[in-house]
Structures are given as structure tokens and as C-alpha cells.
Amino acid sequence: MNADKSILITGCSSGIGLQVALGLQERGYRVFASARLATDVAMLQQRGLEACQLDLDDSCSIEAAVDWLLTQTGGTLYALFNNGAYGQPGAVEDLSRDVLRQQFETNLFGTLELTNLLIPVMRRQGYGRIIQNSSVLGLISMKYRGAYNASKFALEGLTDTLRQELHGSGIFVSLVEPGPISSDFRKNAYTKFKQNIVIEGSAHQRTYEAVEKRLAAQPDPEKKDPFTLGPEAVLKRVIHALEAKKPKARYYVTVPTYLFAYLRRLLSANMLDLVLRRAADSENK
């Protein structure tokens, strides 16, 4: 039933992007999966997906991917799922301008550029779906995640504005806000932590040592976090955003997202800060 519905998905090398791409293909969508590395594109093609290289940090790569996509579809596109992103750990006072810029290049600027290239396609055809993969950290902030928090708060602000601006165009815009999801996110965050944060001499050195230990630890397959869901939980929300006559503006995923969204409305700023500080401190003991 969805054979005429094409969708471009970013960040498909693993986790949410890969699960959503495979799940939608199985559901009958024509899925165009993208990834930053050529090796990951080859893997996606081996999995039976139409795939291309797309680096959100590179305007030329974005433009080339869009040109390729529209050639394949004859100039149409039903949906875009902006999933590509990473997390940069580190205290705000230890983030350089370049490191923060890198976080925004991938998580916001590249996403915006790609979206803006495809909106005219959807306007011409009179319909479309834009789905942004945000985070619970686009709703609340936690210590040592300032760069990621900021990029997701910014994505939420742009998306809320875009949804209003596209009202009546036939293009629907939705945010998906996952909490903890099984993926390579922590492994990739650890890589960025090692690359960009200087531990020695920082006022946060002791906490960083605990952060490093947590991020470097191999997850115990016997120990299942009751709050962590598989990426198929995100797939379920994406399907609703694609197929509902009136998709939701926001889709919460996992108990922590529902909980913190509720506490943000219920508690004062000081009380919410207390809850969030304790959550972060317990995580980094």
C-alpha cells in the first residue's frame, strides 16, 4: 500500500536509522537510506536498501545526495526523516567554539540545509511529511551534555516554527523525542569525548573520570535497563507520523521522556534542576 511513498532517512549506519529504514522497507515504502561513510553505504546496499553517501557537515555532499535522490524518484519525495546526529559530552566551560560548532554543523545546520532543499519539492506536489528525530534532551537539560542539549533545543525551536510556517501547505512536521534507545550513541559519544575534551586540569576532572569509565564500559548483555527500549520503539512513532491523517506535533518515546516532559510542566525550575542534577550525579558515580 505504500509502494508510491518514498522516504529519505539520514544516519542509517546503525541504531534508529537502520531499524527505521529496514522496518519501513518491509512495510512497503521506497526507502532511500543515507550514511556518512562509504563503507556504511555499501552495508545498506547489501541489506537491500537504495542508499547514498550523505555527510551533514558538507553542503556539497548534501546537494549531491538530493540530486541523486530526485533523479531516482523523478523529482518527488513523500517524506524526510532527519535522524543523523551525535552527542558531544563535556561541561559547558570546557567546550571550545569549534567543538560546539561541530555539534551544530551535524545536528542542526546540515539538517536544516537538507530540509530546505526538499521543502520546495513537497510544496510543488502539495504534500509531504518531515519528521525530526530530537531527544528527551530537547525537552530538559542534563549536566555534561550541554552541546547536545543546545543542538536539540535549537532543533525543536526551528521545527516548531517550521510547522507553523507550513500549515495549510499539505506538509506535516513532527518531532520524535526518544529517551534511552539501544544504539551506538554511547560508543560514538565516547569517541567525541576522547577527541575534544581535555580532562587534566579541568574543574570537572573527577567527574570526567567517572564519565569516561561509564562511556567506555561494555554493556552487560545480562543486565537490561528497564527504561531503555530498542530502536523499533522509534519506528512505531515514525509510522504513525507517516500514515496518520493528522500526525502529532510530538511523539514521546520511553518512560523517561514522558516523565521529564511531565515534570517540566509540574515543577519549578529549581526543583527540576535538583531532580536532573541528582539523576546525572547517580549516573556518574
Rank of each mutant, 00 (worst) to 15 (best):
D4V: 14
S13Y: 05
L18R: 09
A21H: 05
A21T: 03
R27N: 12
A35H: 02
R36F: 11
R36A: 11
A38P: 08
V41W: 03
V41T: 06
V41F: 07
L44D: 00
G48W: 05
E50S: 14
Q53R: 14
D55T: 05
L56Y: 00
S61G: 10
W68G: 00
T71M: 10
G75K: 12
T76S: 15
Y78G: 01
A79V: 08
F81A: 05
N83V: 05
G84C: 10
G90A: 09
L95S: 04
D98V: 10
V99Q: 04
V99P: 00
L100P: 00
R101C: 12
F109Q: 07
T111M: 11
L112E: 02
L114N: 00
T115Y: 07
L117C: 10
V121G: 07
V121C: 10
I130M: 10
I130S: 01
I131V: 13
Q132D: 11
S135K: 10
V136S: 09
G138S: 08
Y144H: 08
G146D: 03
Y148K: 04
N149V: 12
G157S: 13
L158Q: 06
L162S: 04
E165L: 10
E165I: 09
G168V: 06
S169K: 06
F172M: 13
S174K: 02
R186P: 01
N188S: 12
N188K: 15
Y190I: 03
K194L: 13
K194V: 13
E200A: 15
G201F: 08
G201R: 09
H204W: 05
K213Q: 11
K213E: 11
R214K: 15
L215V: 01
A216W: 01
P221W: 08
K224D: 11
D225N: 15
T228W: 01
L229M: 12
G230A: 11
P231I: 04
E232F: 05
A233G: 09
V234W: 01
R237A: 12
R237M: 11
V238E: 00
I239K: 07
A241L: 05
L242Y: 05
E243F: 12
K245D: 14
K248Q: 09
K248F: 12
V253Q: 00
T254E: 02
V255Y: 06
P256W: 04
T257Q: 03
L259V: 09
L263E: 05
L263S: 05
L266W: 09
L267P: 03
A269W: 12
V275A: 10
L276Y: 06
A280F: 06
